[in-house]
Structure formats: C-alpha cells, structure tokens
Amino acid sequence: MSVDLEPVIDSLKNEFPQDILNIKEYRGETTLLVSKEQISKICAYLKDELNFTFLADLTAVDYLEVKSPRYEVVYHIHRFGPECEENIRIRLKAELSEDDIKIDSVTPVWSGADWLEREVYDMFGIEFTGHPDLRRILMPEDYGPFPLRKDFDVRNREASKRSFEKALEEGAD
C-alpha cells in the first residue's frame, strides 16, 4: 500500500479512544483489535466518515487451546481511491469468549455482510444480533453441530446422514 494509513487510524483513535485495543502491522497489512461491543459503530464510522465502502470479507477463527477468548471475528475492509494505487485495506478483529458468542451484525452497514454472517453462523455458531435472516446457509437446516469448530471431528458424518435421511423421507418439499 503506497497510501499512508495513519490518518485513518488517528481518526479512529480520536473517535473511539477506548475501543481500539491493539494495532498490529505485519508485511504491510494493518490489523486493529477492537472491542466487540462497538463493532457496528466502528464499522459505520469507517464506512460513512472514512469512505470504506467495501466489505471484502467477513470470517471467524476458532483458537481452541491456543488462546482465550476462544473466537475471533475478522473483517477485511476496503476503500477505493481515485487511483488504484490509493486503495486502502485494513483488517478489524473482535474477540468473542465461549460463554457469550454474540456480536452485533454489520449487515445494516454493508448489506453484503448478510450471507457472510450466515456462513460464519453456520460454521462456528456465532450469533449476529440484529441480522435480518440468520439461518444456516450451507449445511442442511436441521444439521446440529457447527463443523468448523476445532472440537468437531471433521470426519463425523452422523449429522449429515441424519439430515439426508430426513430429506429422503420428506420427499418433494
């Protein structure tokens, strides 16, 4: 990135002095650790005031037995510059502990977050409060476990078989 990120970070720090918990720079990528309570406000500020109009990706990581709190929700946010050398990308992370895996939805900010949040819910069981339609998106709707959690056996096909047999019994929807 040839464009300096500093004005963006300064502006964020001014607006949310309590909620930018950590700033990390690694190989030209900037990652901000933010508090999960403020995530939708921070995202709305980034979009409305700092012109980060594009949510490139939204995903999650399960750090079971690696660190605590266990989950991290990750936001890759993009700002288009007048020239393509002036594009900026930053990464936000919010930590979620196991006993309260809820975070505010950013779908009201970027409507493109809709299916990404559904996928994170489907794979990790993280609930996005305020999401307009939080259902499973890839796995069958009656599928029980959350398969990308690290304590899920990746070869366990029992739940898949149950859903499959139920779908067969029900026949045409």
């Binding site: 796995m139 069958p140 096909r157 898949s160 078989k161 859903s163 499959f164 779908a167 067969l168 026949g171 045409a172």
Partner: peptide, 11 residues
C-alpha cells in the same frame, strides 16, 4: 456428491 445433494440425486 455431498449429503445435501444426495437426497436430490436419489429423487
């Protein structure tokens, strides 16, 4: 063929 597709395939 995934399990989700399998019921469609069978049908």
């Amino acid at each position: 063929i995934t399990y989700k597709m399998a019921s469609v395939c069978r049908r």
